[in-house]
Nucleic acid binder design. Sequence first.
DNA 1: CGCCTATTTGACTCGTCTCAAATAATGTGG
DNA 2: CCACATTATTTGAGACGAGTCAAATAGGCG
Lengths: 226, 226
Amino acid sequence: MSNAGRSISSHTGAWRAGILSELSPEELEHLAATADSRTWQKNELVFPEGNQPRGVFLLLKGKIKIFATGSEGKPQIIHIARPVELIGFRAMFSGENYRVSAATLEECEIAFIARTEFVKLMDANKDLRDTVIRELAKELGERALYVTKMAQRSVRERLAMSLLELEKVYVNEPINLSREDLANYVGTATESLIRLLRELREEGVIQVQARKLVVLNRKRLEALAG
Amino acid sequence: MSNAGRSISSHTGAWRAGILSELSPEELEHLAATADSRTWQKNELVFPEGNQPRGVFLLLKGKIKIFATGSEGKPQIIHIARPVELIGFRAMFSGENYRVSAATLEECEIAFIARTEFVKLMDANKDLRDTVIRELAKELGERALYVTKMAQRSVRERLAMSLLELEKVYVNEPINLSREDLANYVGTATESLIRLLRELREEGVIQVQARKLVVLNRKRLEALAG
DNA sequence: CGCCTATTTGACTCGTCTCAAATAATGTGG
DNA sequence: CCACATTATTTGAGACGAGTCAAATAGGCG
């Protein structure tokens, strides 16, 4: 492995996906030595649907969208990842190819952890395995319920929900997504999204400055989301 | 444990959820000895959302619906389980309470495997752990994509999709669900579902006999599902 | 046979999508 | 730094899918 990137060890205080929290300092050190991070440009494809995973990506800085392509080519954004989050671990564990694509939304710093390294750690660390199982199961629970939320709510309600979720992704900074990406996250047409955004702005629920959205009235949004 | 039920050992040829396929004959024998099955009536609640899981259910005969309750009380059927399928393992692995409910759709035979038994097996059997991880990851992939399918398709398309899925659940027998359950599975109003069913019947795509639906033209359904 | 529930049909409304076009913003080459 | 090209955002008009409410019909079960 090259040594071009910066070590990941300085990030070990704030794992979001709890999966790596079970590693011992030595293991983490080893991981840091083999997994270098590098900078990615905005709008780069991290991995495309259909490819075979060779490891997992650890997002250290920036945001990444995870999206699937619908039957008519319309992308659906399934998740927006923020630091520090492990990307692409599902496909690696399942032994399948990627079923979704990932692309950077802004300039990012991403570390790559080779499959062999991860497997080695898994074999050596029982707690890590238990954590992986627990996290996968939790995530699966979220996903299963997500269907309910999407299928039963109006676009207006889904937008409110989505804004609340995005607030957690964009901590201490305005939500910054293109109208199209936001529409694909909510699961609606861009035009519909824009109209609803205007209504929310006129009601004083959000502040809009070009692409940047700030939630002003969270209570109201929560009420709208149901 | 009581010995009222029938042993599960006679079912070990056709595990659907591959999770238990990694067990050795001895382990399976032990499981069979501690986990007895019993018969459940139609429309019994296997477990309700919010409860703490004490183990997993193994569906040996019959069908079970897994459903979540939406914000306005409207249930959304997330999955319909058929033999031989493990029910409720997600909550057990995640350490959370059930986030969904399960109810029998017809007379069922269900074995219960206590949490302690399952944990014992997991600790002793590395291949079983790997299988659990792999299966959870696979299922997670399915679920993540499901959102895309639901959000982007019309009710007509979702109905076509659903019928194709249900065909795999009801093997060699007609799909047998109330209109309401079917509507809650597709994610639509009962009246809308009925209208679309009539259209499909008139187009010769399905055969309808009271509650019983038979797919006559799978190709056409696949085309409609997109 | 009759009650109760499930299913079906009809009429109407409303949300959301699509298509078209205008405007704003962003990037590019001279 | 300007003029132009290109893309992103916004607004408008119209059509249609799908939900709701109400009522009729059919089925199932005691």
